[in-house]
Each structure stands twice: as C-alpha cells, then as structure tokens.
Amino acid sequence: ADEIDVTIVAGHPPIFIWVKNLTETFIPTVDAELAKTGNHSIDWNEAYGGALAKVGGESDAVGTGLAEIAYNPTLFNPSLYPMQNIAYVAPFNSKNPRLTTEIVERLQDQIPAMKAAWEEQNQVYLGGGFAIDSYQIFTTFPISTLADLEGRKICAPGPAVNWVKGTGAVPVSSSLTEYYNSIQTGVCDGAINFATAAAPGGLAEVAPNMTIVDFGAPYAAALSANLDWYEGLPEEVQAALHAGAAAYSDAVFADQDALINAAYEKIRADGGTVSELSAEERAAWVNALPNVPKEWAAEQDAKGLPGSEVLAGFMQALRDAGQEPPRDWDRE
C-alpha cells in the first residue's frame, strides 16, 4: 500500500463547524473509503486557523500547490469565483442553506464557465458545498418599519453593503470580527450578521435587537483540490475524496441545524430580543434597493462571463423551488 502526503488548509480555526468537520467527517470518511481495499492510505497534515493561509488565501495556497486540499471560502474571493457568489449578489433569495447550495452546484454543472472558474485557479471541485444560515440584522434600536433605519449606520461585510443601500441606512464596510467593537464604540448602530456567528460572538450584548429580515442563506464555500495533483491520483483515491466531501457537506448542515436553535437561545440569554420584520416592511426594504445584481451581471457579461445567464438561472431555480423571490432581479 502506498501512502500519500496531503496538506489540507483552512483559514478559519477549528472552532467553526466547517473546519471542525474536516477533521471529524471529511478525513475519517476518506480514510474509511480507502481502507475498504487497503491499496492506498493518506498521511494528513491539517493546517487550519491561518497557519498556512489566511481567510481567503486558501484558493491560492492550493492553486500553487502549497497544499493539496482546501476548504475554499468562495465568498472572500468574489473576483476569482464571481458566479459562485451569486447569492451574495442577489439578496432576499432563500433562507434555506441546503437549497442555495443545491442550486449553485446545479448551475455549476450546467454552465461550463462556472466550473471553469475552478480550473482557472488550477483546482478541481470536490463537492462539500456549504451555505451560511440566513443573514439577519442586529441593531441597538428596535426595527418595526423601514423608516426606523433612517440615518442609522449599519456595519456590513463586503458585498452586503449593497443590501441596505437606498433604505435610508448608511452602510459601513466592516467585517465579522469588528462588529462587536464598532457597535460598542458607536461607529455603527447595528450590523448584518447570521445567527450562528452572532451568538458565540455575543453580538446581542451590544446590539440586542435581532430582526429577522432573511437576506438569504448564501452559498459560501466548498472543498477543492489542486488540479495537477488530483489528476495524478489513482481513481480510487479520487472517488474517496468525493465521497468524503459529500459526507462533509451533510455533516456541516446537520451541525448548522443544531447550532441555529442554540444560537437563538444564546442571543436571548445575552439579553437580546428576536422579532420578525413584517411582510410589507420587508417588501418595502427590497423595493428600496438599487438593482445591483443587474449591474453585476452586465459587468460579468462585458468580461465574457455568463453573468446574465447565471443570474437568470439562479432566479429561475428559486422560482421553480417555490421560493417567490420578492424582486425579479433578472427581469427588471
């Protein structure tokens, strides 16, 4: 039996379920698959928490051959994986992470240019797609109507600055790690965040009003392998990696389900209140936004990428799944 050296990289530390399950699900599943015949085995070197690459640098680490396999958070590389980021571009889509992941993976199978994004980075898509639980808003003040947002400063991650434009709120470009401090010091009056990240960070301590807006549960990451390395692997090993990735996806989603309930409990324990935005106000919010998805699609089209096709395919898949998107970003 031959032993294969594999370095697997993730910028986040193992405290996050998507890293923890590399160790607890992906690796054991691959090992178990290989043990069935005993022809091959893998000597794993796990490099997490910025040890080998920082968040967003995983793709480069695997593309250049520094590591063999990456937890590849596409959301931090909107210019390398533009199409994969469609759910960040077109908000108010679906609050079901499994559905968004399924749609993006299906689009990727249908539209060659989407798959080509991985080859362009010298990588192969192993599976293991993952979407974040639906984004909500956490504020220092209660929100019952859109007017409550007038003049309020809202911290938002990268592309999400576009989710509050035109609402009267002022987007402040920021990142997950800075929300707590920024709100405590008054730089922002609130932040766009998801429950499973807001809860452990104690965000409700400073922004106790959680309002369910459901910006959507965007596809955010997947597992990928270095293309040259992958092509040199025996078929049996390739199959084991895909099997491991599939099991990983299931396990991360199962953990996410369990965490969401715990997250709401933690938010309430921190003194937070959870309320839902009414359907009319949510509609008012959506209708106030400029059509950034269309602008984005045009920009991709100009680069020779199927931006409009991906946007239309994404929206149609949502409609086909009975989602009733509140805005037809693709048809306006």
Partner: peptide, 19 residues
C-alpha cells in the same frame, strides 16, 4: 485595553471581546 491581541484571541476562541 484596547488590544489587538485580545481581539484576535476573542475571535479565535469565540469569547466576548468586551469581557
């Protein structure tokens, strides 16, 4: 406080940065 290292640590192990 304020401290860059405490912020990094707080993110790393998910404890309140305020604490």
């Amino acid at each position: 406080p304020p401290s860059l290292l405490l912020i990094i640590y707080g993110i790393l192990v998910e404890v309140s940065i305020g604490d």
